[in-house]
């Protein structure tokens, strides 16, 4: 079974570690964790191709998560790659906007590994 290629996008290094640890606790067969600390870095990783899923914070410097979502349709390598947004804020408007521009789901911090699994696993059915 091939290993999953997951991109974690968050300006906090601690949060990137927490997300990766939560993913590994779900039992998913993860490969090397790919990371980006803002939207611009994320798009550079996406261009390299072969990602299975992206988990991205919404609020980030340089380029936020919503801008990433809006940019993905223009990138051939991003086609079919699901994106889950991670947010701290309670703003329904931001979540609704994220879902309307292509996010497949969202996680609200703080989250448990079980919640990560609930969101991520259904999006990887065809991959696993």
């Amino acid at each position: 079974m091939r290993k999953l290629k997951i991109l974690i996008v968050d300006d906090s290094a601690v949060m990137r570690k927490i997300v990766e640890r939560a993913l590994r606790q779900t039992g998913l067969n993860l490969g090397e964790g790919l990371e980006a600390s803002n939207g611009a870095e994320a798009l550079a990783e996406v261009q390299k191709g072969s990602l299975d899923i992206i988990l991205s914070d919404i609020n980030m410097p340089v380029m936020d998560g919503l801008e990433v979502l809006k940019s993905l349709p223009g990138i051939e390598a991003a086609k079919g790659v699901p994106v889950i947004m991670i947010t701290t804020e309670g703003s329904e408007a931001r979540v609704v906007e994220a879902l309307s521009v292509g996010a497949k789901g969202y996680l609200r911090k703080p989250f448990t590994p079980e919640q990560v699994k609930e969101r991520v696993s259904p999006l990887l059915v065809g991959v696993l």
Binding site: E89, G90, R108, K109
Partner: peptide, 9 residues
């Protein structure tokens, strides 16, 4: 950030 965000929510 999480405390403030959840408080706001």
């Amino acid at each position: 950030n999480m405390v403030a965000g959840n408080f706001k929510a």
